[in-house]
Nucleic acid binder design. Structure first.
Length: 547
DNA sequence: GATGGTGTAA
DNA sequence: TAAGCTACACCATC
């Protein structure tokens, strides 16, 4: 395509011209395998990585489709070596397989003998394999199944795990779909996961990931261990399961700091599993308390490191990871890939939006030029003071007021990172403030007031990241955010996306101080959403006042 | 056995 | 990069 939107470069970066009429189509075509790296105004940079290509491969895309997408939207002839490289990389996935052998148990099976020779000679696989059966097969000790997969990913030869799973203890679970039904994409996610065996389902906030979990549990019909990040999430899982499935309260246990109930379906926090005394994990017995047939990892992008280690030993059990943003700021995506499994299902946010399940959202970055005094203070500040200084620039208060004026009557969350800043905003706007110090009862009272429409504006700190019990809102103004967390930004936007009765859009504003690190971090935070097709309109604070 | 406060880890 | 929040263990109190 001579005037296509995409420029494919031999260093494996893809440049997408955002304003091109075919940019949306191109984005959709490359999304399954390319990762967005930078997303400034006009040209977005994507990158081809082995992991991205392998995920695509595991999801059933073949090299031909990838090559076709690149060639179709590329403005210039695609460098031939790159196409060859894409095909080669994708072809590396699955040349080794983990399979069940009738006599030798778990076996690493090669579709390509030299590859087997190569990986067996590597130091990384030492001690993980046993008897050499023949030139295509080598026995693997079951306890090394996870670590071997990790090693093989690192060696660039990811194995396809076809060895199956223990059945687990049967336990009847069915969805009670009398006055509701799984949405088509949820059904599809459950089926794709089930046939894939283990892996990750990626769905936007508010798209009903819990029901995908419930669907998988019903499909499995076994005892299930659900791991969650916090107690609020644990309670929500329990409520949802009681409401939507045949499970009763008695069949669902909570295993946390305060309660240690193990039931056929047990919901545990990651933390309780990772707590140690004198260097040894104290609650590992939970993993053997039942013959779990399914393990669900909620918010799998937040999986703490020790859970990876434990999960390496759980490879014989089916594993379902759920997340809205399969990006980790610590770069451990490859461990999610090898230990939980590849990405099995991924519905782009915009697709779910176009089906009406989440509200459309308009994102705006408002750039505020600091007054000379503040600029000087910023310029002379110590490096570690700079972000805080820029992020909590006093001028932001005025901008917040202007945005509120523009959107009168919207239920609004003002979200920020620094308690001092939030305190001042709360005073200036005469709006209640909710932080970690706010008692649970007081939070409840304020959220109820907000939900009832008695309170229009709530100023909230990072509590909003954790207690997901937040009420509906249609406007959010972010005055500061933590450094470059993409996942936080996505979550904050996700808060607003419950569909509105009248089909209105949600509005998300990020106020940043121009020419400071605040602006740089904001750009990084926006990346994931840009990848999902959310374009930030950049507005000058002065123009906002005029508009 | 429940509740509340303190210190620590991630 | 730092600040903020949560969950846990432990202990004290009722």
């Amino acid at each position: 395509m001579p005037d296509g939107p995409l420029i494919v470069q031999s260093d494996k970066s893809l440049l997408l011209e955002v304003d091109h009429p075919l940019a949306k189509d191109a984005r959709r075509a490359i999304a399954p395998f390319a990762e967005l790296e930078r997303a400034p105004e006009h040209v977005h940079t994507y990158r081809l990585t082995p992991l991205g290509l392998w995920n695509a491969r595991a999801a059933g895309h073949d090299a031909e489709q990838v090559v076709d997408a690149l060639v179709r939207y590329s403005r210039y002839p695609v460098p031939h070596p790159l196409l060859v490289d894409v095909a080669d990389t994708m072809d590396r996935y699955g040349r080794l397989q983990l399979v069940k052998h009738p006599t030798h148990g778990l076996v690493l099976h090669a579709l390509d003998k030299p590859v087997l020779e190569e990986v067996l000679r590597s130091k990384r696989t030492k001690g993980m394999v046993g008897t050499r059966i023949d030139d295509e097969n080598v026995a693997v000790h079951p306890s090394e199944r996870g670590r071997l997969k990790q090693a093989l990913v690192k060696l660039g030869w990811p194995a396809e795990d076809l060895a199956g799973y223990v059945d687990g203890e049967a336990h009847d679970i069915s969805l009670e779909q009398d006055d509701w039904h799984l949405r088509p994409y949820q059904e599809e996610a459950v089926e794709t996961f089930w046939h894939g065996g283990s892996g990750v389902v990626v769905l936007p906030c508010g798209a009903g990931k819990t029901l995908v979990g419930a669907g998988a549990m019903a499909r499995s019909g076994t005892t299930t261990l659900i791991l969650v990040t916090n107690t609020v999430a644990a309670r929500q899982w329990k409520d949802e399961l009681v409401r939507r499935t045949s499970l009763t309260e008695d069949e669902i246990g909570e295993y946390s700091g305060t309660r240690k109930d193990v039931r056929p379906v047990t919901i545990a926090t990651y933390q309780v599993l990772t707590t140690r005394r004198k260097g040894t994990y104290t609650h590992l017995e939970l993993l053997d308390a039942h013959d779990w047939g399914l393990i669900v990892y909620d918010e799998v992008h937040l999986l703490p490191a020790p859970i990876f280690r434990m999960t390496a030993d759980l490879q014989a059990r089916r594993r379902l990871g759920l997340t809205a943003t399969l990006v980790r700021e610590d770069g451990r995506e490859d461990e999610v890939f090898s230990l939980i499994g590849p990405k099995r299902y991924d519905a782009p946010w915009k697709d779910i939006e176009s089906q009406g399940y989440i509200a459309p959202a308009e994102c705006t970055e408002v750039r505020l030029t600091l007054p000379d005094g503040d600029r000087l203070a910023y310029a002379t500040a110590e490096p570690e003071e700079r972000y805080r200084l820029a992020a909590s620039a006093p001028g932001k208060t005025r901008v917040v007021r202007q945005i509120l004026d523009k959107h009168q009557g919207e239920q609004t969350l003002v979200i920020g990172q620094y308690l001092d800043q939030l305190g001042e905003l709360s005073q200036a706007l005469d709006a209640p403030l909710v932080t970690g110090e706010t008692t649970v009862a007081e939070r409840q009272r304020l959220f109820d007031g907000f939900r009832a429409g008695e309170i229009d504006v709530l100023v909230v700190s990072k509590v909003a990241n954790f207690s997901i019990d937040l009420p509906e809102a249609s406007l959010a103004i972010q005055v500061s955010g933590s450094f470059g967390s993409r996942q936080e930004e996505a979550q904050r936007l996700g808060r607003l996306m419950r569909p509105k009765a009248d089909g209105r859009s949600a509005h998300f504003y990020a106020i940043v101080a121009r020419d400071t690190v605040d602006q740089d971090f904001a750009a990084h935070r926006q990346r994931f959403l840009a990848e999902q097709g959310y374009a930030y309109t950049i507005v000058d604070a002065e123009d906002l006042a005029a508009a």
